[in-house]
Amino acid sequence: MNIMILFGTESGNAELISFEIAEAINGRYTVFIRDMSDVDPAELSRDDFHLVVCSTHGEGELPSGAVPFATALMDAKPDLRGLRYAMFGLGDSSYDNYSRGSDVVDELLRAHGAKRHGPFGRYDASSQDDAIQLGKEWANEVLKDLQGVQTSATGKN
């Protein structure tokens, strides 16, 4: 299983976190990173596990980098059954719609049949948390859960 990290960003923070996560888990997995603005959701592979990292902008809207991806989901309505992902949202709780962008992507993915695994991670820019640290911890937790699922699945065979 390969890891595909997808980031949706406006000002680059989601991209930074994605690269830091990649560095942290590289070696344990083969890791790929793609900007969501260059990704057609219909082409995502069932063989990969996806770590989706997405921010929020405007009035609780998607960052511009996630817009083409969301539009493709809404317009082309691809069948994403069997696709696995985990979600990490970036936001700022001093805004009204905290982290809404990541919720929107999550809802769209699920609406098309993809399945979310592990905890939903979030980073609040107006907290004093370390975004990179949070991102790495989230990824580790997601992947730990996932291993659990995989071993118990193989255990049954």
Partner: peptide, 13 residues
């Protein structure tokens, strides 16, 4: 508005 200043971390990397 420290949240806005968070992009600084990218530049530091």
């Amino acid at each position: 508005h420290q949240g806005t200043k968070a992009v600084q971390q990218q530049f530091e990397r």
